[in-house]
Simulated assay, not measured.
Amino acid sequence: MSHPKFVSFSRGGSTGYGLLTETGIVDLSARHGSKWPTLREVVEAGVLTLLAEDAKNLPADFQLSEITYEIPIPQPEKIICVGVNFPDRNEEYKDGQAAPANPSLFIRFPRSFTGHDQPLIRPPESPQLDYEGEIVVVIGKGGRRIPEAQALDHIAALSLCNEGTIRDWVRHAKFNVTQGKNFDRTGSIGPWLVPYVDESQLADIKLETRVNGEVRQSDRTSRMVFSFRKIINYISTFTTLVPGDVIVTGTPTGAGARFDPPIWLKPGDVVEVEADGIGILHNTIADEV
């Protein structure tokens, strides 16, 4: 069963959101923007499914070729990323430590991401641009100290992320990776939001990253060290989650840094992140102008 796909876009100098259909984009922001200005407010109102139902038989307002994809949730309050969340990732770090008791977390800023079909930008400060394919959960119902048993009820939608990283800059200091994770437009989120309906959409799905068609990362969510339930429970212990918050849930082994010698992304490369039932996030690479 295919789920509705909600896109945030820019077109002709303005931004909006809509439903992707077989014939193009149904412009939901033109119909509902005064009430819900962006997909963040749509998520907060809990009306993704309602809008999809209302729009599914409407004619497209314009073609995909007319839009530029933007990250699905503009200006979320929080983008929280989980590090080292698949088996073998610990071994990649060669520190010999057992799997940790709690997830490693870091924050990214919205401007460190770009949309589907846009280039990831390699900055002049470093050639070490790397890929990390991940699944994104978007919070629909906020909360604090959310029990694991109820955690999935707080998810509104799913998306994908290429959590692009400047590798040498994550090693600039002893304890933090913030610098290497936040260069402008080094990562991507998209292509769209898929409404979350039930746990089968997350429980055991394949997550794969390809560079120029070559599979570099491939694993299944059932093998995650920290489950989606645990991640939401843990994060909400110390901060209140609010609708529209974005949680990037961790990447499988196989990033470019782990090759010998490392293989960094370069202009002309094509990176695809794919997950069952969610879609394919596609980006090229370009140097910062």
Rank of each mutant, 00 (worst) to 15 (best):
H3Y: 14
V7I: 14
F9G: 12
S10F: 07
S14N: 00
G18Q: 10
V26W: 02
V26D: 04
L28F: 10
R31C: 02
H32F: 13
H32S: 07
G33Q: 08
G33F: 03
G33Y: 09
K35R: 15
T38F: 06
L39M: 12
V42T: 12
E44M: 04
G46Y: 03
T49N: 15
E53R: 15
A55I: 12
L64T: 09
L64F: 13
L64G: 12
S65L: 02
S65T: 14
I67N: 04
T68W: 00
Y69E: 02
E70A: 05
I71C: 06
P76W: 00
I79Q: 01
I80P: 06
C81N: 11
V82T: 14
V84A: 12
P87M: 10
K94A: 14
P100C: 01
S112K: 14
F113N: 07
T114A: 07
Q118H: 13
I121N: 08
R122E: 06
E125R: 12
L129K: 03
L129D: 08
D130W: 00
D130K: 08
Y131W: 15
G133I: 04
V136H: 06
G143D: 08
G143Q: 10
R144T: 14
R144I: 07
I146V: 06
Q150M: 12
I155P: 07
A157D: 09
E163I: 00
G164Y: 04
W169Q: 13
W169H: 15
V170G: 13
Q179L: 15
R185M: 12
R185C: 14
T186R: 03
G187Y: 00
S188C: 06
L193S: 12
V194G: 04
E199Y: 06
K206E: 10
E208N: 01
V211R: 07
V215Q: 03
R216H: 12
R216D: 01
S218Y: 01
R223G: 03
Y234I: 11
S236A: 07
T237S: 13
F238Y: 11
T239V: 15
P243H: 05
G244R: 06
V246M: 03
I247W: 11
V248I: 14
V248Q: 05
P252L: 02
P252A: 03
T253A: 15
K266D: 08
E272V: 08
V273W: 01
A275E: 04
I278Y: 00
G279V: 09
G279M: 06
L281K: 01
N283R: 09
T284D: 00
A286G: 12
D287I: 00
